[in-house]
C-alpha cells in the first residue's frame, strides 16, 4: 500500500507528468481514496499555475541602452 509519504515523495514528478503509467496509476488510486493528498496535489498544482502566470517588468529602455553602450565600448576595446 502506498502511504501519504510515498505520495508526497512522488508529487513533483506526478504533477510534471514524468512518471511511468504504473506508478501514476498507484498515485491516482491513492488520491482517489485520500482527501488530504488530493488537496495537497490540487493546491500545489494551482500554486505552480499561478506563479507561471505571474508577470515581470520588461527591460526599461534606459537600462537597455546602458547595456548596449557598455557592450559596444567593450567590443570596441576588444578589436
Amino acid at each position: 500500500m502506498l502511504t501519504c509519504k510515498d505520495f508526497l515523495r512522488e508529487l513533483s514528478d506526478y504533477l510534471d507528468e514524468s512518471l511511468d503509467k504504473e506508478i501514476r496509476a498507484k498515485l491516482e488510486k491513492h488520491i482517489a481514496e485520500c482527501p488530504n493528498c488530493w488537496v495537497i496535489a490540487d493546491t500545489t498544482r494551482k500554486t505552480i499555475k499561478i506563479y507561471k502566470g505571474m508577470d515581470a517588468y520588461p527591460v526599461p529602455v534606459d537600462v537597455q541602452s546602458r547595456l548596449m553602450a557598455a557592450l559596444e565600448k567593450k567590443m570596441a576595446a576588444k578589436k
Binding site: 508526497l8 508529487l11 493546491t43 500545489t44 500554486t47 499561478i50 506563479y51
Partner: peptide, 17 residues
Amino acid sequence: VKSRLLRARLQLREKLT
C-alpha cells in the same frame, strides 16, 4: 534539483494556502 523543487513547491503552497 528534484528534491529542492518539491520543497519549494510545497513551501509556497503552504504560504499561499
